[in-house]
Design a protein around this nucleic acid. Structure first.
Length: 959
RNA sequence: GCGGAUGUGGCGUAAUUGGUAGCCGCGCCAGACUUAGGAUCUGGUGCCGAAAGGCGUGGGGGUUCGAGUCCCUUCAUCCGCACCA
């Protein structure tokens, strides 16, 4: 019998399905092992060969762990909410659920063909109400909690109310929005609505006016990680900035923990670095600059200032007193408080709330014009014109708290509203952006840091700022002569003494905007009463997505859900019309897999305590600033409220690389329908055109097929070289338009799933991106056929002997056991495949068909090629699946050697080899080498200066 | 600009972690079997050289008996962040 992969693979896939072979139980004596793949969004295009790469790696690992005696859970599901299905719905009117269901079926079919050991009984689909009930449930919990910095965890809002009733909001260290201080009495005198407004500043899921990334083409707001270079990641549409009332998640409360816990998890250094940068911690100081008296007089009115002033956020309780006095303070954040003496002006972001109020009356029109212009500039324009310096003087002055100097306050869009306080003290001498601004508007530049060993110089002569983080302070009063590092500490101490500021930490991380003005997402379990949002009762979950007549915003610009009939509670209160973003459902799906059938809870405590966390998570690194940070936050919150037992969900994470396409090109001579072969193309004026890789073999074009490929090529002419048309090639992204897509279905039809699995692993390390080389797959196919022939003779009869193996055969087997076992543990699947090839080549050379060798080998291979090994396992006389047998034990005994073939080198160059006993002494080895006839040529009669002998490594003769 | 990663045959890669550079596969070359070969099998294949031998891990320098591996420096490519104070 030949290796009939089609029949074998169908047979075993059916067997696994019927016998629920990979169903994991939540109770077991075995140790648990949870292997997870990032679940896919089921797109209409189906899978290409790049998608399963990570799934194959994790599947091999899952199967390996089963053989090693673990109770393995390896679930799969679908991230079903996504823009493509919705865009399609807008165009065609087809409900996104219909499209999604169809795509899921297609994905499922493709995945099944590859022979994954997924436990489909645990399948989670994010758009299924049975699942998203728990996404909504978690949202309500977020709404009902606030972040207490004292205990450094989330606590119920009910406790917060208790605290307010006792002490107002004093003595409370919470992560919150801008809240004025109030007493217990004041709290008690507030109306229900006022209380809700106050609480909203504390909730972990909160509604607030926020500057958002608004994408008009998609008609929705996007999260920061969904915007790339001013365009939407999905679809590539322009994105604008807009102030809108939005739900947000207070992920910033967790910034420090998200940063610190990175040290505890096994992720690649590069991915951790991406997260560190995204969180963007910087240490520095908050400094309060008083408005100069003259400026206060020019400002609108003292009353207005007072209001403004009392809303200023202070994080230091001592400062609160000062702040509520009648003085306008502008808070800036700086990482370099040491350079305070060099602050020669201040800059506010155009969106800064004080800009218009402090502007001098005569400057107000120009300031207002500038602010309008800057606010309406698109993200894209801002980015494209980073070098362009713009700004406007407000006419107001601020007082430097350290030296009493009055400095002009400017407004400029190089200061971002979203970072720090949206206001900076400009130190042009030591910050390149401030320097450029100062030069452009002719503002003074003062040197306050000096390079060690240099003199103070005239800043007028400077061509750039001195941005160094090291140096000696000058022109800085009490800090003169200090090192920068010490001066920072001294400056902070000083401003704290003066109550003009305090040391603090800032994060680049922003709260996650959680509303989308779209249809295809989880509805918020929220209704409005008196204009304030309230959560639905848990008993009313899930709040199911209603039907709508059109998947578009209403005529008045409300989100699509506003079209739904009776979109209210039973009592008639209106329900929220926004939906949740894509990352909502994927932030906690891995928890649901632990207990997906649970009707009464997200998951049971027992299930969570059994599975704990994910031992191995495999997915792409493009989720570094999105899913992987939201999910960590989500999990940390659930940890705080005692729902999950592990603070970090993904203990070990592997980023699989991408598989790039290998495109082929033909070269059309311009203005003709003639195509010239690759090596002759330089003689002509040509245009390179993508050609379908299906009609190219080994870079040789099938010219007949090419003529048939497209009507316009029917009469194409060719200029050949050596009678063939050679195509050019390039490595590019795999995409339909480049005609370089390899579908796994075609390859499985031609070579089988086992070959595809092994070839994808053979390409190179999983983490690396690499081009797909269609030709190479045949090497792996040959390998499996060769493997088959170890068990079957020339006549196709199963022929395995019970003869006792030779030592040489045992050595081959046990070397493979050791090598492959350790390779899998290290996720080095490419070297494992190559070790299999070596092993099979050697056994074929020995014509070994002995059961004692082949049976363990078959188990060894089963994680990689599950179908062929199941079949052979059965042929070997076993019943049932190979999936739960034991991984072969390595026995040192069989690989022990008596001699070692020493490379002998002269001055580090290997010249010949010499076989010596393993226990040889240095003196014996030296004598043997020097006596060898080959040595005479290299010694040329001279005695060696030295002989280095490293046991079982090398002998080096120095001459 | 900042951060991260990667540079080894024509191509994908390997190298027990400082010890024989190029394993395994593709491609290529030669041969066998065949009516045929885009099937199968066998052998060869880093570069230069007739050979002896020399040269070789992006470039330059260093440490070492010995460097793809460690150190310094430089270049290139890819990815992430980017007016982040």
């Amino acid at each position: 019998m030949d290796y009939n992969f089609r029949e074998i693979e169908k047979k075993w896939q059916q067997y696994w399905r019927e016998n629920k072979t990979f169903k994991a139980r939540n109770v077991s004596e075995k140790p648990k092992y949870y292997v997870l793949d990032m679940f896919p969004y089921p797109s209409g295009a189906g899978l290409h060969v790049g998608h399963p790469l990570g799934y194959i790696a994790s599947d091999i690992f899952a199967r390996f762990k089963r053989l090693k005696g673990f109770n393995v859970m390896h679930p799969m599901g679908f991230d079903a909410y996504g823009l493509p299905a919705e865009q399609y719905a807008i165009q065609t009117g087809t409900h996104p659920a219909v499209t999604t269901e169809k795509n899921i079926a297609r994905y499922r079919e493709q995945l099944d063909q590859i022979g994954f050991s997924f436990d489909w009984s645990r399948e989670v689909v994010t758009s299924d109400p049975f699942y998203y009930k728990w996404t909504q449930w978690t949202f309500i919990r977020l709404f009902e909690h606030w972040y207490d910095k004292t205990s450094d965890k989330a606590r119920p809002v009910s406790e917060l109310i208790g605290a307010f009733e006792k002490h107002g909001n004093d003595n409370l260290d919470a992560v919150c929005g801008e809240v004025s201080p109030f007493t217990a009495a004041e709290w008690k005198s507030m109306t229900e609505k006022e209380r809700q407004q106050v609480l909203m500043h504390y909730r972990l899921a909160y509604l607030a006016d926020t500057w958002v990334n608004w994408c008009p083409a998609l008609g929705t707001v996007l999260a920061n990680d969904e915007v790339k270079d001013g365009f939407s990641e999905r679809g590539g549409h322009p994105v604008e900035r807009k102030l809108m009332k939005q739900w947000s998640l207070r992920i910033t409360a967790y910034a420090q923990r998200l940063l610190d816990r990175l040290d505890r998890i096994e992720w690649s250094e590069s991915l951790k670095e991406v997260q560190r940068n995204w969180i963007g911690r910087s240490e520095g100081a908050a400094v309060f600059f008083r408005l100069a008296v003259s400026s206060q007089q020019s400002a609108v009115s003292r009353d207005e200032l007072k209001t403004q002033n009392s809303e200023l956020k202070t994080q230091n309780s001592e400062l609160k007193t000062q702040n509520s006095e009648l003085k306008t303070l502008i808070e800036v954040f700086t990482t370099r408080p040491d350079t305070l003496f060099g602050a020669t002006f201040m800059v506010l972001a155009p969106e800064h709330e004080l800009v218009m109020q402090i502007a001098a009356p005569e400057r107000r029109p120009r300031v207002s014009e500038y602010v309008e212009w800057a606010k309406n500039r698109s993200e894209r324009d801002r980015m494209a014109e980073v070098k362009r310096i713009t700004g406007e003087f407000t006419g107001a002055y601020a007082v430097n708290p350290l030296n009493g100097q009055e400095i002009p306050i400017w407004v400029a869009d190089y200061v971002l509203a979203g970072y720090g306080t949206g206001a900076i003290m400009a130190v042009p001498g030591h910050d390149s952006r401030d320097f450029a601004f100062a030069r452009f508007f002719d503002l003074p530049i003062v040197q306050v840091v000096m390079k060690p060993g240099e003199e103070i110089s005239d800043t007028h002569q400077w061509s750039e700022s001195y941005d160094a983080k090291e140096g000696i302070m000058v022109n800085s009063g009490f800090m003169n002569g200090m090192q920068v590092k010490d001066a920072i500490t001294a400056a902070i101490r000083k401003i704290e003494e003066m109550k003009a500021g305090f040391g603090t930490v800032n994060y680049r991380l922003r709260d996650a905007i959680f509303s989308r003005q779209r249809y295809w997402g989880e509805p918020f379990p929220i209704y409005y009463k008196d204009g304030m949002p309230y959560p639905l009762d848990d008993s009313q979950l899930p709040l199911e997505l209603p039907g709508v007549d059109k998947y578009l915003p209403t005529e008045t610009g409300e989100p699509p859900l506003a079209r739904a009939k009776n979109w209210t509670t039973k009592e008639g209160y209106p329900l929220e019309t926004n939906t949740m973003p894509g990352f909502a459902g994927s932030s906690g799906y891995y928890l649901r897999y632990m207990d997906p059938w649970n009707k009464d809870a997200y998951f049971s405590k027992e299930a969570n305590e059994y599975w704990q966390d994910i031992d191995l998570y495999v997915g792409g690194d493009e989720h570094g600033t999105g899913h992987l940070i939201y999910a960590r936050f989500w999990n940390m919150f659930l940890y705080d409220i005692g729902l999950v037992c592990c603070e970090e969900p993904f203990r070990k994470l592997i980023n699989q690389g991408k598989i790039q396409g290998r495109s082929n090109f033909v070269y059309r001579i311009n203005g003709t329908n003639t195509f010239v072969s690759f090596n002759l193309k330089d003689q002509y004026d040509t245009t390179a055109l993508h050609v379908d890789i299906e009609i190219v073999d080994n870079d040789i074009l099938d010219t007949e097929a090419f003529r048939k490929w497209r009507p316009d090529y029917e009469n194409a002419g060719f200029i050949l070289e050596d009678g063939r048309y050679v195509c050019g090639w390039e490595i590019e992204k795999m995409s339909k338009s480049k005609h370089n897509v390899q579908s796994p279905d075609d390859l499985i039809a031609k070579y089988g799933a086992d070959t595809l699995r092994m070839y994808e692993m053979f390409l190179g390390p999983v983490e690396l991106s690499k081009p797909w080389d269609t030709k190479g797959i045949e090497g792996v196919f040959r390998f499996l056929k060769k493997y088959w022939r170890l068990f079957y003779d020339e006549n196709g009869n199963f022929n395995v002997s019970t003869v006792t193996p030779f030592r040489s055969e045992l050595k081959i087997l046990h070397n493979a056991i050791r090598k492959i076992g350790s390779d899998i543990e290290r996720f080095s699947f490419n070297t494992a495949v190559s070790a299999f090839m070596i092993c099979i080549n050697e056994l074929t050379d020995l014509k070994c068909n002995k059961r004692e060798i082949l049976e363990p080998l078959n188990i060894l291979l089963s994680p990689f090629a599950p179908h062929i090994t199941e079949e052979i396992w059965q042929q070997l006389g076993h019943s049932g699946t190979i999936s739960y047998v034991s991984f072969p034990e390595f026995n040192e005994e069989f690989v022990r050697e008596d001699t070692f073939n020493y490379p002998v080198s002269f001055n580090g160059k290997m010249r010949f080899q010499m076989e010596l006993p393993v226990g040889v002494t240095a003196a014996e080895a030296e004598a043997a080498v020097l006596a060898a006839s080959e040595s005479q040529k290299w010694l040329a009669g001279n005695p060696p200066k030295k002989v280095v002998f490293v046991p079982k490594k090398i002998i080096n003769v120095v001459i």
